[in-house]
Nucleic acid binder design. Structure first.
Lengths: 413, 413
DNA sequence: GCAATTACAACGCGACGCGAATTAAGTGCG
DNA sequence: CGCACTTAATTCGCGTCGCGTTGTAATTGC
């Protein structure tokens, strides 16, 4: 267990304040105090330190209290967007997506490389990633040494701590240290994270989970990912392993054990006899499910059934998750959602049937169709989240700024 | 999020020290410092405060360092067993089990009431619980006002915070406030917890999870319970709902959705055509599975198949849990384990088949057949765990003991 | 009996968060 | 135009925390 010392205490409160500023944008100190339940004194001290470190800046406008604004006006605080830049990336089997963001997660540049990395050797993938990162950083008008952290996200079972990829649909080899390969090439702090966790952070920071510190996210793409946000933080297993959903067994008979991924992954939906080359091409381009939807609408009954079957399986799996985690919200994302109601109707039905009665109204299900860029942005958010928590400045006590003290004393009197 | 203040800091470290003393029995201050990674100074201050509050006591013996014990001998510290007493209880459908423990969880008295509470109104059950608590406390030679907390555990979905029972196999009604009913009768602090969480704590404190801060426990009885220990603490869902396993759906088709409880609960195993009255009677007495094992050994093929089917389903469910939580250990408990290998062979086989390759060696499966009393003791441990964390003494700073100071100064010189 | 060794307590330091008092920076009314 | 009023933010002093250093206590070995 982590030992509790003043340093930890400050780290917690600093993060809390910084995160509050991020979430509510321009916000005054008083309001931070109200939201964090820290005293005004403490908030002042912490914000002074943050200002000193250049992580936030002041703005003397935007006080939007109701009309009669009596008293000393509030000084609004915002993140200093220039405080740091990070790169987030999504590695999928048929494309690499990069984005550079500033300190508050605004996208400065983004880049999609539609290359099929599927089953390539790690070293080759790492080369591609290096290339993408360098180009995207250049596009943002930055130099590589201005990037604080690179965060890579990909499907599969990832050891967050070590940056090892235990297994992934996009990797041929198992148990490779992706982090090491990237650090060797870029010499920048690198984080490797499951793509589901990345998009979970994205939803929490920018999307449908902004107002909610506890939710479960299910990512339905080629792989089936799972992200759990618990108390505002990503829930990682005991060994910092990321969670996956595709390996969930749907069936009671080990002889006929069917994994969820065999029912609900994109590959599974297409694995009728659809050798249709147009569809396969569309999938290469990452628009497979849109095409599939089109085919269903044109009357392809086989695909319709496959979609419904996938939806049913997912509905059940989600009900199982709700029974396990009892989250107030379940967010669904991923390219497979392009199937629309062909997937969702059966999903909702199966969920409703499967969810036990006392948990009926525990979880609200939210569908969110998101862009690839948001996934990459989520990876960036993972990186930023770690920056927010790490100590800046001079291992920094919340010291009163000495510089100001001098000028004040001399000029003022 | 909890705001970090000095009080929280002290609570954490105090708990940490107290818990270390509990786990390692007679232990010196230096050793506590090593184990908690707190400085010797801090440990001294905290232990002084704990001594002051009477929660621990010193013992000038038992220094078991290797032969050549040079230097000032270590003073060993132990919990003061008299510091508090709690009652733990297990409420099952056909029996109530109580135990009174002292501050370190030793059982002072225990009591089993073989009554069928199944489907009784809450008020009646509460009456029975009241009765049992009073009798058990008396058996321990104590008065009711010497009991600090009562912790009740029962199967089902429990809201730990409010003490409400959302649904339980032993309750006829849904969504009742058991805590309230008990407090009204006994006027003692009451905790309501799922029985799976209770036995999880029992395994952590006294059983097969002593050395391990992260594990998953599956309780296989009439109901199927799930306990998750994460970082040394019970993992509770966002709403402090306890987790259950029986509602996990084993199947992909919503039309034929089968809950795990329909395959692996004791009722399910017996629900062949076994109206055999001897078996039913045995079940009433809580020895059903032992009898079933006997019948299987006598050649009852139907039951053998049912047991194997249950094992398979459980093996798959456990594999799913491992895929979700990646725990280093999975502990299996519960009366159904009396079936022995008739259950476990198929369980192991199904688990091995279902677990995805990269997670092959993540989790070690441990079978632990435990007594009813341990469940009740686990409930007591839940109560004690909360006591360890709560502030004692005078909202107590780690003050240097004033009393001792006086006598020392006056007597010593 | 004295040195060496080890455990523990006492003291002082720096940092934290908080409440009360103080200063800053506006609005509104006469 | 100026003065009271109001609210925001800072400063100050207090109590607490954990930690490093120093001092003291209680042994063993020679």
């Amino acid at each position: 267990m982590k030992t509790a010392d003043p340093e930890l205490m400050r780290a917690i409160n600093r993060f809390h304040v910084l995160d509050t500023i991020r979430r509510f944008g321009a916000i005054s100190r008083v309001e931070i105090g109200e939201r964090t339940v820290l005293s005004a004194t403490t908030v002042s001290a912490i914000t002074a330190s943050l200002l000193d470190d250049g992580l936030i800046s002041t703005r003397h406008e935007g006080d939007l209290r109701s009309g009669g604004a009596r008293g000393r006006p509030r000084v609004m605080l915002t993140l200093n967007p220039e405080a740091a830049r990070v790169v987030g990336a999504k590695i999928a089997s048929n494309r690499l997506v990069f984005c550079v963001t500033n300190f508050q997660g605004d996208v400065l540049a983004s880049l999609t490389l539609p290359v099929r990395v599927d089953r390539l050797p790690v070293e080759v993938i790492a080369d591609l990633v290096e290339d993408g990162v360098r180009r995207c950083v250049m596009d943002a008008g930055l130099a590589l040494n201005e990037i604080k952290t690179v965060a890579l996200s990909l499907p599969g079972i990832i050891e967050h701590g070590t940056g090892r990829v235990r297994s992934s649909a996009v990797f041929r080899d198992a148990n490779v240290s992706l982090k090491e390969a990237i650090v060797k090439r870029l010499d920048i702090d690198t984080i490797v994270e499951s793509d589901a966790n990345a998009i979970t952070m994205a939803e929490h920071w920018f999307g449908r989970g902004r107002d909610c510190d506890d939710f479960v996210l299910v990512a339905i793409e080629e792989s089936l990912g799972l992200g759990v946000l618990h108390g505002g933080q990503l829930f990682r297993g005991a060994r910092e392993l990321s969670l996956t959903l595709g390996d969930m067994i749907m069936g009671s008979d080990p002889e006929h054990a069917i994994k969820l991924s065999e029912l609900a992954s994109e590959r599974a939906i297409l694995d009728g006899d659809h050798g249709d080359s147009r569809v396969r091409d569309a999938i290469r381009l990452g628009q497979g499910m849109g095409r599939v939807r089109g085919l269903i609408e044109e009357g392809d009954n086989e695909l319709r059934i496959a979609a419904a079957r996938a939806g049913s399986a997912l509905g059940i799996a989600i009900a199982n998750l709700v029974a396990l985690f009892a989250p107030p919200r379940v967010i669904l994302v991923g390219s497979t959602l392009a199937l629309g109601d062909y997937l969702l109707d059966s999903l909702r039905l199966a969920f409703a049937k499967a969810i036990p009665d006392p948990l009926k109204n525990v979880a609200q299900i939210v569908i969110d169709e998101v862009s690839d860029e948001l996934w990459a942005r989520g990876a960036a958010a993972v990186a930023l989240g770690e920056l927010y928590g790490s100590p800046w400045g001079t291992t920094g006590p919340a010291r009163r700024s000495n510089t100001t003290e001098f000028s004040d004393t001399e000029a003022g009197r």
